[in-house]
Design a protein around this nucleic acid. Structure first.
Length: 182
DNA sequence: ACTACGATCCAA
DNA sequence: TGGATCGTAGTA
């Protein structure tokens, strides 16, 4: 997807990312790609967002131009991948919570959950700030399939305590790789 | 320097 | 429901 795809309201980008393809090219030549099936939106005026308290070293890229990766380390053992949204100077990002890895069951999926997905794809802070609209990168997002509204389920975000009532989580219905169900 | 906490995951 | 595990940010 071109960088302009991310240069709009974060919640709108989150919904539009469902179905797009995340591609990971490893140094040894192996390639993994899968459709994005679960996302969450985080904005500057959102208490649950890392950028809510203003510019900090950790979340600096969220304030930069759209289409870049925001990768952070959490709970002492996991990384989470986001795509920066909104125009340069305005913070915003979409957390990629799960991608379809075509595993036969929920139990066997290795990409259903933001921490698992980064571990499986070898994504760490080295990827923080890379352009995800650039197909020459070892990690990028390309156009996938269109997900119809009736295939989308909207709910509250997972694992947060602030602004927990916002319906900013979007996931593809009945997909085995979605991280949790209600 | 010290402390509390977190956009997770898995076992029990 | 609780433990693992550690960077970040706030306070002293």
């Amino acid at each position: 997807m071109p960088s302009s795809f991310y240069d709009r309201p974060t919640v709108e980008v989150a919904r539009a990312l469902l179905g797009q393809t995340l591609v990971r090219r490893f140094a040894d030549g192996r390639v993994f790609s899968g459709a994005i099936v679960e996302v969450e939106a985080y904005t500057a005026d959102d208490p649950a967002c890392h950028a809510f308290g203003g510019r900090k070293q950790r979340c600096e890229v969220m304030f930069g131009p759209p289409g870049f990766a925001y990768v952070y380390f959490i709970y002492g053992m996991y990384h989470c991948l986001n795509v920066v949204t909104e125009s340069d100077g305005i913070a915003g990002a979409v957390l990629i919570r799960a991608i379809d890895d075509s595993a036969p069951s929920v139990r066997e999926s290795k990409t259903n959950g933001p921490g698992k997905l980064c571990r499986y794809l070898g994504i760490d802070r080295e990827f923080n700030g890379i352009p995800l609209f650039d197909a020459k990168q070892e990690l990028y997002i390309k156009s996938g399939r269109t997900i119809k509204d009736r295939e989308v389920e909207i709910s509250t975000r997972i694992g947060i305590t602030k602004a927990a009532d916002r319906l900013w989580r979007f996931h593809v219905k009945d997909n085995h790789s979605v991280s949790r169900r209600k």
